[in-house]
């Protein structure tokens, strides 16, 4: 890829991220101060359950930080020049997911809308999120940075499903006007499967680039 093209591409990604991240911040702010009768919760009768309430607000309040923090970890400039910053942000990212966002996501997934398949999707996603983040942490400690990168890419792809799920829902609603629950059942799966496919592509692409660089060095 030419240098200019790469720059344009990266700028686009940053702008897109800022745009969608601020939308998610606004969604989170709907629940500040603590509000049981807004947006998603208006139709969610489970909010009357005490443990669901805890899980819901833990998830909403913690996940937004995961989304924002994770983005900085993929900026090569910070990774190379501010290793300590990378580590501190990384520790925060991992701790929040492992102790707050993923477990609360699993509980919410159990009560998910859209029937058994949707619940399965949410729970599976929460478990995969937990495992990939845990493994990424392990490999960072062991110094196996390629594997660390691979698992963190998957972990953040799952984090970004917060954006993609809502984006796909919007696209389907605007262009196909399907009934609301049909859309929901679709995006519950599409929202993270497509992200995983993209993550897999990124991992393959980066590893091939790395191999080529190593071969050139060897020559």
């Amino acid at each position: 890829m030419g240098l200019h093209l790469k720059l344009v591409f990266q700028t686009c990604i940053v702008i897109a991220f800022i745009y969608f991240a601020q939308l998610l911040v606004l969604i989170t702010l709907q629940y500040v101060p603590l509000n049981y009768d807004v947006s998603f919760l208006q139709l969610k009768t489970e909010i009357n359950l005490f443990h669901y309430r805890i899980a819901f607000f833990t998830h909403v309040y913690s996940s937004i930080f995961v989304l924002l923090l994770g983005f900085f970890q993929f900026i090569p400039f910070i990774r190379k020049n501010y290793k300590k910053t990378h580590r501190i942000i990384g520790m925060l990212y991992i701790l929040i997911i492992l102790f707050l966002s993923a477990p609360s996501g699993l509980i919410m997934g159990y009560y998910g809308n859209g029937g058994i398949y949707s619940q399965l999707s949410f729970c599976l996603q929460a478990i995969l999120w937990f495992i990939t983040t845990l493994l990424a942490n392990r490999y960072a400690i062991k110094g196996q940075y390629i594997k660390h990168f691979n698992f963190m890419t998957i972990s953040y792809a799952l984090t970004l499903s917060a954006i993609s799920l809502r984006l796909f829902k919007w696209i389907i609603a605007v262009f196909w006007q399907l009934p609301p629950m049909d859309i929901y059942k679709l995006v519950v799966w599409l929202g993270w499967i497509i992200n995983l496919i993209v993550a897999y592509g990124i991992i393959k692409f980066t590893n091939r680039k790395r191999q080529r660089l190593n071969q050139m060095k060897a020559l």
């Binding site: 939308l23 208006q42 809502r166 829902k169 919007w170 605007v174 609301p180 929901y184």
Partner: peptide, 17 residues
């Protein structure tokens, strides 16, 4: 009315709804 409110406000917006 609850579902109508939700459909009108959130059906084609960026969010869960």
């Amino acid at each position: 009315l609850k579902y109508e409110k939700n459909a009108v406000e959130y059906y084609d917006s960026f969010g869960r709804g």
